[in-house]
């Protein structure tokens, strides 16, 4: 389309198009009487659409923010962001959404069914649920002095794990100080043991200081012997009255005698895990030495 320039102003020109229409176009150095083809029609401030635009844009923006937020909220609300496992004997898994609302509790064994019976978690915050479940476990006798509890924190978000670990501090302190419960905290990278300081009454048989209680630890690399067997305990209701602090197999006080089978007290003989090891172990008559085909 060709346009004839009829009138020239600083900003614009009036041109006559071949199709008979008169237009205002931006003046790009045009001259009256010249024929041009590349034009740019003058923009106009159309008041009504502009005010409509002004009104609609913030509304649209607000609406989209709302929709997106709501969508994310709904999406997050139904998605497991982190879980806390409670292991006493009843084992449960508590799943929470991003905003820490509990969305599901799984009973991982029969005792857990008993623990959760009648418990309503809907809409509750995960920290309160953990707190309440621990209280229920105490009330129902699953958790008592000398027993232990494992809290496992599972989430892709380390901060989430740390936050909930911190939120549990009060409860952990209570369990440790008041209830003398051993607490194991597992955030899947590190395992932290919180062992109550046992108020040991000085025993006439023992000259060791209470600090020595920790020599025979079940944690770390010191020995391979776990002494969790509740029977050989020196405290709590199952206290067997015998502190075996001198009978250690390692460290400076090592007596040189591993007493796994001979030094069985009443507790061990009834339920120790180590007894079967001695009686049924195949280590002595291993096939590797006697009947291996590799020898020839």
């Amino acid at each position: 389309m060709k346009y004839l320039v009829l009138e020239v102003h600083t900003l614009y020109c009036i041109v006559l198009a071949e199709d008979g229409s008169y237009l205002k176009v931006y003046n790009k150095g045009y001259e009256v009487g010249s024929f041009i083809s590349d034009i740019e029609i003058v923009k106009e401030a159309s008041e009504k659409p502009r005010s409509f635009k002004r009104a609609i844009y913030p509304i649209l923006a607000l609406a989209s923010v709302f929709i997106i937020t709501f969508g994310i909220y709904m999406f997050d609300a139904s998605r497991i962001y982190g879980s806390i496992y409670l292991d006493i004997n009843p084992s449960v898994r508590i799943d929470a959404s991003r905003n820490d609302t509990v969305i599901n509790i799984d009973a991982l064994n029969d005792d857990a069914d008993d623990l959760l019976e009648g418990y309503v978690y809907k809409g509750k915050d995960i920290d309160s649920v953990v707190d309440e479940l621990v209280d229920i476990a105490i009330a129902k006798g699953y958790l008592y002095a000398g027993s232990d509890i494992t809290f496992t924190f599972d989430s892709d978000d380390d901060t989430w794990k740390m936050t909930h670990r911190t939120n549990l501090d009060d409860k952990i302190n209570y369990l440790k100080e008041e209830l003398q419960v051993t607490i194991i905290i597992d955030d899947q990278e590190d395992v932290e043991y919180i062992i109550p300081e046992v108020d040991i009454k000085p025993s006439e048989e023992s000259e060791t200081t209470p600090d020595d209680t920790y020599v025979d630890t079940d944690y770390g690399v010191d020995d391979d012997v776990t002494d969790h067997g509740k029977d050989d305990t020196d405290y709590g209701p199952n206290n067997d009255g015998v502190t075996d602090y001198d009978d250690t197999d390692y460290g400076p006080n090592n007596d040189g005698v591993t007493d796994y089978s001979s030094d069985i007290d009443d507790g061990y003989s009834s339920s120790s895990n180590y007894e079967p090891v001695d009686s049924q172990s195949n280590y002595q008559n291993s096939n590797y030495e006697n009947s291996s085909n590799y020898d020839g």
């Binding site: 009829l6 009138e7 009036i14 008169y22 009487g33 010249s34």
Partner: peptide, 27 residues
């Protein structure tokens, strides 16, 4: 040709002005 076109346009503007019409009115 440019000069001739300019003259035509000037004449047209003048005649239209007699009718009380400007190019701006037409646009």
């Amino acid at each position: 040709r440019l000069e001739a076109t300019k003259e035509e346009i000037a004449e047209l503007a003048k005649v239209l002005n007699d009718f009380g019409v400007s190019f701006k009115d037409l646009s």
